[in-house]
Design a protein around this nucleic acid. Structure first.
Lengths: 354, 354
DNA sequence: TACAGTTGGGACAACGTTGTCTACACCACA
DNA sequence: TGTGGTGTAGACAACGTTGTCCCAACTGTA
């Protein structure tokens, strides 16, 4: 049997460095942490030994002993291939970096159970805070984790059954303005394509649509609403049916960019020119063959404000749970000029997109 | 002076649970880890105590003691707002999740020093592996970290001055095919817009352009190459000058999607119809007012294959450093049908985009 | 009743680091 | 020469967990 004097790939520890430099463990600790009460000659020797061995401090051990922060936040988010989520992630990453924190990006899952499991894993890792872009409905399960001392901020959707901060969009006002524009242009039969109403944001947008009708003393025909349009492909298919119908709408409102893009594809494939308003701006929407009016917002700010809020909590600031509502902006293309519309007051972010 | 019997927000530990359940620390450990040699009645009592206190295992402490993996990988990447990087990040996130790992997404920085610093921070945190989408030129500084036991895989660019795995695109073949198409259509004055040649990928693409000329016995006019086109705005501006020139090119080749999008903007704003080939596909490129031919590739596969490679290393597989070259595909729009072109052999990924 | 074998639970040390306390050497000053 | 202060370094314990070892209590059998 061969005795291996040292396991081959074990990382060197402070003890190894101390031995090599002929000093105590604690002195190495002092040098590594830049404590000034070490004789320069000795510090030099220690540094040399550390370099030779390729010593790298074990951050987790230091955190464990000192009770310091892990300097890590978690982000629960769905699909980074989606421009909307990717921009949020970019904003959060920027703020984390500015604060010297690392960011763990985790999947928010398909339902409340997945979400809870992901949160619990991050809590086991003792992240200092969590940003959650929820997919599920009920967040009551997370209350316990928050009470246990992990601050949470929700992005894009208000938490349900849970007392926590949030940064959301003014979905109602945005949809109201977008629909209003179409109504004011004389359209009364507006086809509405939305994703499932289990997403509260969709409900808010649909209510905004209804309100635009009410504002003008018009009645809204609920049969013009097409539900569960979750993907561009679905939207494109549904549009085929809609356009073929006898009394086809003369204009369209799409609840998000996925349905919007799909609907446009079909519309243009048939050479149709019905105006379409899309909630969510999307990349290159200004380069499209026909002007696309969109309801845009500062997506980056959504993430950045959420992260800032979280860091205030992490720094120990204590305040009532708050919900920041970000304004949307109707970006008219090809009709009149861009015009902002009234919305809930909010500290307007200054960060630009791109 | 008030003695605080227990600090207010300290998380409960195994010791606390043990005390409450009236068992030993070790028994709690056994229950938490699902060891079967515990009396069910006692296990129940422990579980109950743990639930009441809101006990959450300290993952870092467990890793420290047991010497297990941190089950974490690091991803160094630049700007998630860029569709190219976001897709890579999404792929890496998916593979990490499939392996039960968490993903720390960190910024790869502007230069080799930033990059090294980011890598070192992740090594202090003892990530089990690193995926790097490099921005800098020289990676020799990372050799040490790799030797110390952190496997690394480079994405999109080959490592320089460092022995490590990589997954890259066949930039040369892609550019050659794209330029070849324009030449075969009869264009000989092709304007070339590229970013800085300090990006080796740009050099490979430019060489592909040159090769296309050589293939056909044509000579390439280097004065048609516009360098340092780093943003869409820059591309749009440079195009203004180019179009105004006396002997303007009759076709264009853009080195990446940033320059491509900017160039198209100016081209279309002037109602020009010169064909343009763009390296990198981009979102909605098929919905553009005029057909845009692009050199596309499976971006998601780039990230996924890199992550798979990394996990093989993490699992302890030992093999020579390898570089996987992903094929590109010339996507002709508005001219003929899509046609793949010959390229280096590689196990073709099956994952689709979106 | 005595003994071996099996089962379940606790005591203790260790992972790699830092906080606290103490010890020693040196200097200045009385 | 004694005293006190300062500057530097080491000993020891502790962070929250798990691995190892051992012991007590059962079981079944001769």
């Amino acid at each position: 049997m061969v005795t291996d004097s040292h396991s081959p790939s074990r990382r060197p520890t402070m003890t190894d460095v101390a031995q090599r430099a002929g000093v105590s463990l604690k002195t190495v600790s002092r040098v590594v942490n830049g404590v000034q009460t070490v004789d320069p000659e000795m510090a030099g020797r220690v540094q040399e030994a550390a370099d030779e061995l390729g010593y790298r401090p074990n951050f987790a051990a230091a955190v464990l002993r000192s009770g310091a922060r892990t300097a890590t936040i978690g982000l629960l988010i769905k699909d980074l291939r989606n421009e909307f989520y990717a921009t949020i992630a970019a904003a959060v990453a920027d703020v984390a970096r500015a604060n010297g924190f690392q960011l763990i990006t985790s999947y928010s899952g398909e339902n409340a159970d997945d979400e809870l499991e992901a949160v619990q894993d991050l809590c086991r890792r003792r992240v200092d805070g969590l940003l959650i872009v929820p997919t599920s409905g009920d967040h009551a399960g997370l209350q316990k984790e928050r009470d246990l001392g992990t601050p949470m901020v929700f992005l894009d959707r208000r938490p349900e059954g849970l007392d926590a901060d949030a940064v959301v969009l003014d979905n109602f006002a945005g949809a109201r303005a977008g629909t209003g524009m179409l109504l004011d242009e004389g359209h009364t039969r507006i086809g509405i394509l939305i994703d499932t109403l289990r997403m509260p944001t969709m409900g808010e947008r649909l209510n905004g649509v209804r309100q635009a009708y009410t504002d003008r003393g018009l009645s809204f025909d609920e049969s013009l609403v097409v539900h569960n349009v979750a993907t561009p492909d679905k939207a494109a298919k549904r549009m085929e049916t809609i356009l073929a119908a006898e009394q086809a709408p003369t204009a369209f409102f799409c609840g998000n960019n996925r349905s919007g893009v799909g609907a446009l594809r079909t519309l243009w494939a048939h050479g149709r020119t019905e105006p379409l308003v899309c909630f969510d701006d999307f990349h290159l929407s200004d380069l499209m063959p026909r002007p696309v009016t969109v309801i845009g917002y500062d997506n980056y700010a959504l993430g950045a404000l959420g992260a800032e809020l979280l860091f205030r909590r992490i720094r120990g600031e204590d305040f009532e749970s708050q919900t920041v509502v970000l304004p949307t902006r109707l970006i008219r293309r090809g009709t009149t000029t861009d015009a902002p519309h009234p919305t809930s007051p909010v500290n307007q972010p200054t960060e630009g997109i791109q």
